[in-house]
């Protein structure tokens, strides 16, 4: 029964990783860049919800919406100001810019909100469900986390496959120049991608902060790296891959923490990633691209 408890909490953690990983993978798929500032968008979302809920006393639902809105706007602004001028630049310049943006967000947060850790309020729900005479306790939060992830996945898959914008996104991911020739506005498509990714980061932020209720300017860095790993794990650029990678990573992390060692869990998670990439060099669901001469 304890195994099941760990498995379920791993599933919840993995769902959060998956939601963050979606942001990485979508941006990578379309803009071909590693957006290292994505983790700090999570942090921004956490602070937005915190201030809306505790300082301005807004209801939970509106706080969440405000947090999503803040992140979406922030994501689009960052893309327009920092990344857009670098469309033609080398990928390393873009990477360094993303790191610059990450430092910028972290240090701005430190100046605006202070470097002390804040206690995040239980904005979603409290309480839990009991199964098997109380042997298995699953909190509502865990259920909400997993359900949110499922809803997001279904919604996003439908959006990408059924709508016009989704089609434009797939076309951009395939071949940007050809897409442009077909009359697709690349700048708008990339902006929308960033907006969706950043909005998802806000949702992840609220789920993450509700589970681990401490808020600090460096909140996003470790989940950011983990989610990035998850995206690569599943095959970067692939949306089902991000889900699979995120959930597997969360479960592996939680089970290692429970049964092997808390201190070594990071090492084991990364070792699993290396092994997977050795067996399947483009991640679990990644596509292999052949280089033609």
């Amino acid at each position: 029964m304890t195994f099941l408890t760990y498995l379920i909490s791993g599933l919840a953690l993995g769902s959060v990783y998956a939601i963050i990983a979606l942001g990485y993978t979508m941006v990578y798929g379309i803009a071909k860049m590693l957006n290292f500032a994505h983790g700090d968008i999570i942090m921004a979302g956490g602070y937005a919800a915190f201030y809306a809920y505790t300082r301005f006393g807004l209801p939970a639902g509106i706080s969440i919406l405000l947090s999503i809105l803040t992140c979406t706007v922030l994501g689009v602004i960052i893309e327009r100001l920092a990344y857009k001028p670098l469309r033609q630049a080398s990928s390393l310049s873009v990477l360094i810019t993303a790191i610059g943006v990450s430092y910028f967000l972290q240090n701005s947060a430190q100046l605006l909100f202070g470097s002390d850790t804040k206690i995040f309020p239980s904005i979603l729900t409290e309480g839990s469900l009991r199964f098997f005479d109380g042997k298995l306790i699953v909190s509502y939060l865990t259920l909400i986390t997993i359900l949110t992830c499922i809803v997001i996945m279904i919604g996003l898959t439908l959006f990408i496959n059924k709508t016009k914008i989704g089609k434009a996104m797939r076309a951009c991911a395939e071949d940007k120049e050809a897409a442009q020739l077909m009359g697709i506005n690349i700048d708008t498509t990339i902006s929308i991608t960033f907006a969706i990714g950043s909005g998802l980061a806000a949702i992840a932020a609220i789920l993450l902060c509700s589970t681990y209720p401490s808020l600090s300017p460096s909140l996003g860095s470790m989940p950011g790296i983990k989610a990035f790993t998850a995206a690569v794990f599943g095959g970067i650029g692939s949306i089902p891959g991000a889900l699979l990678g995120g959930i597997l990573l969360g479960i592996i992390e939680n089970l290692t923490k429970a049964y092997i060692s808390t201190q070594l869990s990071d090492a084991i998670v990364f070792a699993v990633l290396i092994i997977v990439l050795l067996i399947k060099p483009t991640g679990l669901l990644g596509k292999k691209e052949n280089v033609k001469v």
């Binding site: 920092a82 001028p85 670098l86 033609q88 630049a89 080398s90 310049s93 873009v94 360094i96 810019t97 790191i99 610059g100 943006v101 990450s102 430092y103 910028f104 972290q106 240090n107 701005s108 100046l111």
Partner: peptide, 18 residues
């Protein structure tokens, strides 16, 4: 560190400005 971050971003923008 804020200034450092801004310097990073601006230099990268200038470096690849056509």
């Amino acid at each position: 560190m804020l200034i450092y971050a801004i310097v990073l971003i601006i230099v990268m923008q200038l470096g690849s400005s056509v």
